[in-house]
Design a binder for these strands. Sequence first.
DNA 1: CCCCGTAACTACGACCTTGTGACTCTGCGG
DNA 2: CCGCAGAGTCACAAGGTCGTAGTTACGGGG
Lengths: 182, 182
Amino acid sequence: MPGTPVGPDFPPRIEQGVLSPDGDEWRDVGYSGPSVCSVVGISYRQLDYWARTDLLRPSLTDAAGSGTQRRYSYRDLVALKVIKSLLDGGVSLQTARKAIDYLRDHLGEDLASASLVIEGANTVLAHTGDDIVDLVRRGQGVLNIVPLGGLVESLEASIHDLYAEPLGPKDGAAHPVRRPQD
Amino acid sequence: MPGTPVGPDFPPRIEQGVLSPDGDEWRDVGYSGPSVCSVVGISYRQLDYWARTDLLRPSLTDAAGSGTQRRYSYRDLVALKVIKSLLDGGVSLQTARKAIDYLRDHLGEDLASASLVIEGANTVLAHTGDDIVDLVRRGQGVLNIVPLGGLVESLEASIHDLYAEPLGPKDGAAHPVRRPQD
DNA sequence: CCCCGTAACTACGACCTTGTGACTCTGCGG
DNA sequence: CCGCAGAGTCACAAGGTCGTAGTTACGGGG
């Protein structure tokens, strides 16, 4: 697996409370709903739906009524991307829900080199190829495998694009990117 | 679809050959809808829905109006079981549809030792563990893996149970014939 | 030989899950 | 005080599942 160590600090990993480079408000931290959509490649309605059905809500700031904002952390982005992959791979939302519940508790681990493996009700992180062969051999039901390496990689790329494309006078991450894409 | 209530070539050519031991009617061949349900472990409504939406129709005799019967072959059973597994594994029906389309063309191969691998739009039969590791390494999206060995095995077991637990005194229609061996 | 019960199939519609579109509502910055 | 981005609401659609009622064929009892 490509353990490509990405830029250590480029995507601001703000969950610890880093502020915006401009020393602006705490609000400039994390990712807004629309930004998230363009980064992970889903529609706003989908993100909205997922948030209000508890699949994944923003861990930085949840919405508190009309006029407020949701702020997503980097880890949220990873989780979201995993969900998106699962969906694209033909896995049902229900299954994705369970997988994400598991993932949330293991987001600290070294994701880039691992694969997420779902077998029925159980979810596991496989760190080596042998782990996987083992699982396939033992498994009786279907296995759903998400190679996290490539996933994180393309996530980083999308984030990069987010910063590069729009030109806001002062804010980066907080800046909403209106970009029609399906 | 095809009228053919009782045509010239109606005495169906069974893939495993062999009519009922009693030299009975052609009807005693293959598996009836309800039998299939109990063997594969799905609801009758599901089987019905799948048949009318073309996911998988009985290859021996399709329905030709109310009062007629569907007769499923052993291979149909295998395909059905694969679908069931996919569903249990959280894979969407849509994805299962594509996989089955592929499987239908490869049902002749040696299934018991292989695994069905779905990656996005592509479906493949992997015969060795290395094949799988390879696919995981290359794959960017989600992989869905169905180990066919265990599947065929449990199918055989269910069929056995079906024979062991006779229901009516002479329910010919519900009685499948000839336990297959391929 | 006909009538009736039952197995198995078809028809039809309710209902759930996932979203989507079209608006409306509201807090915040200018 | 106004405009706007983004949250909230509501109606609706597609894809499936499920329950139930209506049909049809077949076989046994009168």
